[in-house]
Design a protein around this nucleic acid. Sequence first.
DNA 1: GGTGTTCGCGAACACTGTTTTCGAATGAGT
DNA 2: ACTCATTCGAAAACAGTGTTCGCGAACACC
Lengths: 219, 219
Amino acid sequence: MDATPVWLRERRTGVGRPAERSRAEVTAAAIALADREGLAAVSMRRVAAELGTGAASLYRYVDSRDDLLDLMTDEVAAGYQLPAPDGPWLPQLLEVCRQGRSLMLRHGWLPELVLTRSALGPHGTDLLEHVLAVLAGHPADAGRKLEAFGVMSTLTAALALNELSGGSGARQRQGAYLAHVVAAGRHTHLTAALTGGPLVPAPLFDDTLSRVLVGLLGE
Amino acid sequence: MDATPVWLRERRTGVGRPAERSRAEVTAAAIALADREGLAAVSMRRVAAELGTGAASLYRYVDSRDDLLDLMTDEVAAGYQLPAPDGPWLPQLLEVCRQGRSLMLRHGWLPELVLTRSALGPHGTDLLEHVLAVLAGHPADAGRKLEAFGVMSTLTAALALNELSGGSGARQRQGAYLAHVVAAGRHTHLTAALTGGPLVPAPLFDDTLSRVLVGLLGE
DNA sequence: GGTGTTCGCGAACACTGTTTTCGAATGAGT
DNA sequence: ACTCATTCGAAAACAGTGTTCGCGAACACC
């Protein structure tokens, strides 16, 4: 029944044998491993091996693998560069989305974590604070602004995930089945959409998110 | 190098010993198990036990666990009731979203699958066909309509996931940390948003998706 | 009957997250 | 300098996981 999240469970009383590593080191090792071999490769044993230690040792720094995943997510969120809010809100939020996309393309495992687990750590709350600051003069109520933040994150992650799976075999399989569906004859609208003109006229990241945000918050 | 998806890899001819079960039966057992104990409980051994058979037998019906997950997703998508397209597009798309939400609340494991794996099976393509049919008279180009379909699915799943995690301990932990952040003093905008008025003024599912879709596709 | 082919599935392999356990290391108190 | 509570490191064990192999059994057709 320990309801306290990872972020405020720091140790260090100064007494006893000092730790040989830090939570930040463990997190960095996990991120490096995930960058190199994907999220599935991030097992306690492999992360420990990355640090030249035993798997059980990691539990001195982290309560569970899920905790480690949350730490990874928040650590990457430290990469956002957030200038002081100034001027119209839309371009500033788009800039946040662009940075998010860039971070997610650099760390291909991030979208999955952002989409399925929504824990906000220190850097995540900094990001949220920045978005709210950008929207400070906006007439929408607080609930709507928080919702906009969620939609921003979700859509950015989903679009990044799409881009990332573009080269892999997943697309090929999907394409193979869609080709079969088209050949089957039914699904006339799907066929028309897939055979007319350029199939994917470049995913306009900015345009999409801009339209969605304006729809949500107003001009 | 087998690039053919699950959907078009159907049973062989009538030669040899006949199978005792069907792919649909396996899928149904997996869904029942997931409904009862969550997605994590859907292991090959547990699904097999549900059917009173051995784990290895499942591989006669499915190439991998991931295949089984795709089958589960598409099977649930059979639950959509899609009337003939008629009238303005927005209410019809909202109806699709409402049904999606309902299906996802009934099957709490669905959002995660929809968000992280985007494979479209037979029923998924039927759904896409329906959405495209609803939008047949709409001036947007095909790429934008496909994008709208993706955004609809993603947002519906993300909102459903939010609703589902409302009662669990995840919310409590998140709240605990946010309370700590508010107490810390910095993050003035976050504090204002969290302490002013009703915290979550009822997640207006329809309103949110309606705004987003109108923003994306135009009035 | 034979034969070709498929099915069911016990056993095994290589993993996984996590707990237990205990020796070793340390800083504080005396 | 010596104790000693306290903390750390990590091997071993536990209870699982997805997947493959191999083999006997069951059927359709000739």
